[in-house]
């Protein structure tokens, strides 16, 4: 044992191996070579869970018709979807049981998968393809084949979701998942399809005096102190330091033609820009 201890002590004095261990000035490298845009001609969309899916056929069907038409016109997009009231139900149960945030994230992830499968069944005839994270490397093939890749909106954090500063609801839900996917792909843009014309000074469903805001910066919105934001807080924070997708648009999926118009580059709804 003494011998071993001595030998180990001599080892402990040996400096750590050198070589390409530390990265030489990563900031300079990043500035010199900004990130590649993987799919710059492809939109990433999110169909709201509570705002669209939970309304059923009346809201979903007209949106799908516009998406099929957009696809027919050669517009590339990846379709993400949110959770909605069932996610709220299971979060509520989990909170009641004092489950940790990471377990809530795991539970919440199942609902957008259900919704994505619903959309897949409805779009299968028109090229709808269910895509999980391991299929992302096939996205170019799906898009080139004229397909509609459908992704559940939740990021894969699940048991690795961090606790928020306050509360226990997972901070990264489907807005973050869809936004960060768009940022990773260097997408043409990220569009959120909801049931209001866009952003208001307050929740228009609860406050009839809320005023429409066509355009705002992420910093202004965070600083406004508005409690019921239109999008998850982390998205506004990440936009500020993102390299690729520096604005996001919110459109009213209940309005005739709004989705197709936005996919053709229309400027309806509200836009949030990085500062």
């Amino acid at each position: 044992m003494t011998e071993r201890v001595q030998w180990l002590k001599s080892q402990a004095e040996t400096p750590a191996p050198t070589g390409p261990g530390a990265i030489d000035d990563p900031l300079a490298l990043r500035r010199k070579f900004p990130p590649v845009r993987m799919l710059p001609n492809t939109w990433v969309l999110k169909i709201g869970g509570q705002s669209i899916m939970d309304r059923g056929r009346d809201a979903v069907q007209p949106i799908l018709e516009q998406l099929i038409e957009a696809r027919r016109r050669g517009i590339n997009f990846i379709l993400g979807v949110g959770g909605g009231t069932r996610a709220r139900h299971v979060y509520s149960l989990g909170l009641d049981l004092d489950l940790p945030t990471a377990v809530l994230a795991r539970l919440g992830a199942a609902v957008p998968v259900q919704n994505a499968r619903m959309l897949h069944m409805l779009l299968a005839e028109h090229g709808g393809i269910m895509c999980y994270v391991d299929h992302f490397e096939l996205l170019p093939m799906f898009l080139n084949a004229g397909s509609i890749p459908i992704v559940p909106g939740m990021p894969t954090f699940e048991y690795w979701e961090k606790s928020p500063e306050t509360g226990r609801i997972p901070p990264h839900r489907t807005d973050a998942g869809v936004y960060l996917l768009g940022e990773f792909l260097g997408a043409r843009g990220v569009l959120f399809i909801k049931d209001e014309d866009g952003l208001y000074t307050d929740d228009p469903k609860k406050n009839p005096d809320a005023e429409f805001v066509p355009e705002i910066t992420a910093g202004e919105l965070l600083a406004s102190g508005q409690d019921e934001l239109i999008v998850e807080r982390v998205v506004l924070e990440y936009m500020q330091r993102a390299a690729q997708v520096r604005e996001i648009r919110f459109i009213n999926g209940l309005k005739d033609g709004a989705v197709l118009d936005a996919l053709e580059g229309g400027t309806g709804g509200s836009v949030i820009r990085a500062d």
């Binding site: 994270v133 992302f136 990021p155 894969t156 954090f157 690795w160 998942g177 960060l180 990773f184 330091r241």
Partner: peptide, 9 residues
């Protein structure tokens, strides 16, 4: 952690 392509900036 399995954040994959969702790794925040």
């Amino acid at each position: 952690p399995p954040y994959h392509c969702w790794e925040p900036p």
